[in-house]
């Protein structure tokens, strides 16, 4: 075991739905800056596994096993204390806040005063959204919304990134561009990344190991 490696490690993590085993015990090590992919049929518990890593698994789902992030066990930590970033299929930008204030929401408290605004503007510029600070999220295109959601997640300075089919709502070149942007950022920041998808192209872009979850729905 290379304990010094850090990253995101799952040790015999299993997810149950009541008495039914949804995700059989899974061992997985994702070193910093690399991405692993989880694939499997609908209802195989992929999203539940991500929710468990975030600390937001709702009953009657429950999970067992150990999750470590940079050698720190996550068990018992509240979701907001885990520093695990997640992107969903829907961008989930808060509809009552402007684009810039959505991003500012994610900045850690330690960033103060004018630096907050500067950091948000920088993130907007970095994602091709210059001048969007005061815009209503509802007026953005799908691609723009996805980029804003990505920057919001990254501004919270996560130590790991979870992707719950974030590309599936986009198509064609837009999809490829966002995919490249996400993985590029994750690599540059050295984030261990776990991707859930139906699309083999997504898995290719992630570049890491691919784990197929069995179809537990049709089990006896």
């Amino acid at each position: 075991m290379n304990a010094a490696a850090g990253g995101l490690r799952l040790e015999s993590v299993a997810v149950w739905l009541g008495p039914r085993l949804l995700v059989p015990p899974l061992d997985l090590a994702i070193p910093p800056g690399t991405a692993a992919t989880l694939m499997g049929p609908s209802g195989s518990g992929k999203s539940s596994l991500l929710a468990h890593i975030c600390g937001t698994l709702p009953p009657p789902l429950r999970a067992e096993g150990t999750i470590r992030l940079n050698d720190r066990p996550l068990a018992g930590l509240a979701p907001e204390d885990r520093r695990v970033g997640i992107l969903f299929q829907d961008d989930l930008l808060f509809p009552h806040l402007s684009v810039g204030r959505n991003l500012a929401f994610a900045l850690p408290r330690a960033v103060k005063g004018r630096e907050r605004r500067r950091r948000v503007e920088a993130a907007l510029a970095e994602s091709g959204l210059e001048g969007f600070y005061g815009r209503d999220p509802a007026t953005l295109s799908g691609g723009q919304r996805s980029r804003a959601a990505l920057m919001r997640t990254l501004l919270a300075e996560p130590l790991a990134l979870l992707l719950d089919e974030p590309f599936s709502r986009l198509d064609g070149p837009l999809r490829a561009r966002l995919r490249a942007l996400v993985f590029d950022h994750a690599r540059r920041r050295g984030l261990p990344t776990l991707l859930v998808t139906h699309d083999p192209d997504d898995a290719d872009a992630a570049g890491g190991p691919v784990i197929m979850l069995p179809d537990t729905q049709n089990g006896v």
Binding site: A78, E80, I86, L92, F105, A106, T153
Partner: peptide, 19 residues
């Protein structure tokens, strides 16, 4: 209300009261 908004807030580091 889509409960993922609150989950998103939590994953962005917001404590329950703030979320």
């Amino acid at each position: 209300l889509d409960e993922r908004y609150q989950r998103t807030a939590a994953c962005l580091g917001a404590a329950p009261v703030r979320a």
